[in-house]
């Protein structure tokens, strides 16, 4: 499989998510971790861009990072999947390579 894109910055603090969305090939996957998980909150100004991206990409959010930040995992943008640390490891082995948008 192709590339796993990892975003760990808030979409409202840095342009990491936008750079990722601009440069990720269709069918590559996106994993939100650390402050990147703020992009999973619905009805926000970045939500539409994330929703659009879901047409071409699987998007995952790291559950422990959501929990640490008080983000309800039952109330994410529709279509985002949850992963735990084991799931994180599995994703990095499922894909050929990882790209971290620091």
């Amino acid at each position: 499989m192709s590339v796993l894109h990892i975003v760990n910055k808030s979409p409202y603090d840095r342009n990491s998510l936008d750079a990722c969305l601009r440069l990720a090939q269709p069918d590559s996957a996106i994993l939100l971790i650390e402050d990147g998980v703020y992009a999973a909150i619905p009805k926000a100004s970045a939500s539409e861009r994330v929703q659009q991206a879901l047409n071409n990409h699987q998007i995952y959010a790291l559950q422990p990072d959501l929990q640490a930040r008080g983000i309800n995992p039952d109330n994410l943008i529709d279509g985002i999947s949850l992963v735990d640390y084991d799931g994180f490891v599995k994703l990095t082995t499922d894909y050929d390579k990882s790209q971290s948008w620091l």
């Binding site: 559950q63 422990p64 929990q67 640490a68 930040r69 008080g70 983000i71």
Partner: peptide, 8 residues
């Protein structure tokens, strides 16, 4: 934000 839990 409410319910922040850094346990994990």
């Amino acid at each position: 934000l409410q319910n922040q839990d850094t346990g994990a």
